[in-house]
Amino acid sequence: MPSDTAPTGLQGVADAAKAAGSGGLPPVHLWHPAHCGDIDIRIRKDGVWFHEGSPIGREALVRLFSTILRRDPDGFHLVTPVEKMKIVVEDAPFIAVRVDRDGEALRFLTNVGDAVEAGPDNAIRVEIDAETGEPRPYLHVRRGLEALIARPVFYELVELAAERDTADGPRLGVASNGAWFPIGPAGAHLA
């Protein structure tokens, strides 16, 4: 538990994250602090982080918080060795804002600075909205956390896509690091 003199709330989480993350990504999956609560942080669908209704304007602070984000069965939490604070995430916590083809790999960059290679451990998946038919593409980033693939980046994936015959019929998809990911329903590209 934090001491009576330790900062609480946003500043306390920021201080703990700085201390914990000095050598790469902190091992949040190993931390199970006794103190749990809520903090008024919300990540909007467009990837903007808010605290108490106002956007968090310091990019470095958002990047810092992104390193201590964890998804548990009951939702998303900022986790430090001494605190676990629940936050609200409207869709995916990150946005994939860039993709580059490098040999057999697709390399993505997120809005919080994560560099992720798609492949067996970092799958691309596309949900189709039942009402509008619009795709919602995602990339696994780390430990159950995903990035929504921004629309311009998804268009780049479509340009890189190739058709494959599947059990459901011909589908467009992309390959990366030995894995193939369909990016739309069977036959959608033929319509």
Results as ranks from 00 to 15, higher is better:
36 C>T: 15
153 V>S: 11
52 E>C: 14
120 P>W: 13
64 L>Q: 14
109 L>F: 00
136 R>N: 05
164 R>I: 02
71 R>G: 02
112 V>Q: 15
167 A>G: 01
169 G>T: 02
33 P>G: 07
107 R>Y: 00
117 E>F: 06
63 R>E: 13
120 P>Q: 10
137 P>Q: 05
26 P>R: 06
76 F>L: 02
61 L>C: 06
58 R>V: 14
105 A>M: 03
162 A>Y: 00
61 L>I: 12
43 I>V: 15
43 I>R: 06
115 A>D: 04
71 R>C: 14
167 A>R: 15
47 G>L: 08
131 E>V: 03
152 P>R: 03
114 D>Y: 14
105 A>W: 01
98 R>N: 11
114 D>M: 06
54 S>T: 12
90 E>C: 02
74 D>P: 05
47 G>N: 04
92 A>E: 15
166 T>G: 00
160 L>Y: 12
163 E>R: 07
61 L>P: 03
80 T>G: 12
75 G>S: 09
148 L>N: 09
138 Y>S: 11
114 D>N: 12
125 R>D: 11
124 I>F: 04
158 V>R: 03
155 Y>V: 02
54 S>W: 02
152 P>S: 04
35 H>K: 05
151 R>I: 08
136 R>P: 01
125 R>L: 08
127 E>P: 01
72 D>K: 12
58 R>Y: 03
30 L>Q: 14
135 P>A: 04
98 R>Y: 05
40 D>W: 02
128 I>E: 05
167 A>Q: 10
169 G>K: 06
37 G>R: 04
108 F>A: 10
58 R>T: 11
33 P>M: 11
105 A>S: 13
104 E>Q: 07
137 P>D: 03
108 F>L: 07
156 E>R: 00
53 G>K: 10
26 P>D: 10
77 H>Q: 07
68 I>K: 02
92 A>F: 01
99 V>W: 02
147 A>K: 04
50 F>M: 14
105 A>N: 09
158 V>Y: 00
145 L>R: 15
65 F>P: 14
145 L>G: 07
44 R>Y: 08
80 T>P: 06
169 G>D: 13
102 D>C: 01
25 L>M: 13
32 H>M: 00
92 A>S: 15
70 R>V: 08
31 W>M: 14
64 L>K: 03
81 P>K: 06
60 A>M: 14
103 G>H: 04
52 E>G: 00
39 I>Q: 06
36 C>Y: 07
165 D>N: 12
102 D>L: 04
121 D>F: 03
73 P>F: 07
71 R>P: 10
100 D>Y: 02
111 N>G: 05
50 F>Y: 15
76 F>W: 10
106 L>D: 07
67 T>S: 12
60 A>T: 12
33 P>L: 01
107 R>W: 01
118 A>C: 01
43 I>P: 13
119 G>K: 04
38 D>T: 14
154 F>W: 05
161 A>W: 09
